[in-house]
């Protein structure tokens, strides 16, 4: 474990908690894509299949449970909470994410580290996390609503990606044979898509602020 990865995990967790608290506090999820949040929950559920079989460290096991619980809590809030679910942009959040899930699964069947049940699902979760932001990006382009996507959320999400890339560079130079190419390449694609999301986020933010000022 290095400080970059620890900080990356913390900023990732904080971004999820910021979103959960924002939805719970305002009892609104306007502008938030349920499909992206479902994909994130699926990412954690398929990546942490080794929760009960491989013990890496207490930190690792605790964080897996926290990520699964917090991502499911957001999905539950948006689907079941009587007040929150009313504000969901159902007719705008129409990205057909099932095709993305299928494409990632096929890719995982072809490209993985070992052809075992857990490894195929691990690769699937890595690919899926890279593209999970797409429904949110599409919804943001359509709705331009950044009310619930706070600046802090975007900031911590960006910090998570940046710190993980530094972590990979650090591990590449300090550990012999650090070769998690699937995670690194997919992570770079994910970061590029996040950069696109951040671009549209700030455009929407500026547009919203301008309208507010007029």
């Amino acid at each position: 474990m290095n400080i970059f990865r620890f900080a990356g995990d913390m900023t990732h967790l904080i971004s999820i908690l910021i979103l959960l608290l924002k939805i719970y506090a305002t009892k609104s999820c306007a502008g938030i894509s349920l499909k992206t949040q479902e994909l994130y929950a699926l990412v954690f559920l398929t990546r942490y299949l080794d929760l009960f079989t491989d013990y890496v460290s207490l930190y690792n096991s605790v964080m897996k449970i926290v990520f699964i619980a917090s991502s499911l809590a957001i999905v539950w809030c948006m689907r079941r909470h009587p007040l929150v679910r009313r504000s969901y942009d159902k007719d705008l959040d129409t990205f057909r994410h099932q095709y993305v899930v299928l494409a990632c699964f096929v890719l995982a069947l072809v490209l993985h580290e070992r052809f075992t049940f857990q490894e195929v699902f691990w690769a699937f979760s890595i690919y899926l996390e890279a593209v999970a932001i797409l429904p949110q990006l599409v919804l943001l382009q359509r709705s331009g609503n950044v009310d619930n996507l706070t600046g802090q959320y975007v900031l911590f999400l960006g910090a998570y990606r940046g710190l993980y890339i530094i972590n990979w560079i650090y591990r590449y130079f300090t550990e012999d044979h650090f070769a998690r190419w699937i995670a690194c390449v997919s992570g770079l694609i994910q970061t590029a898509l996040y950069a696109d999301f951040f671009y549209y986020y700030y455009l929407s933010r500026i547009k919203q602020d301008t309208i507010m000022r007029l």
Partner: peptide, 10 residues
């Protein structure tokens, strides 16, 4: 071989 190690990254 090396890849037998469990994934240590979250």
């Amino acid at each position: 071989p090396l890849q037998q190690r469990p994934h240590d990254e979250l």
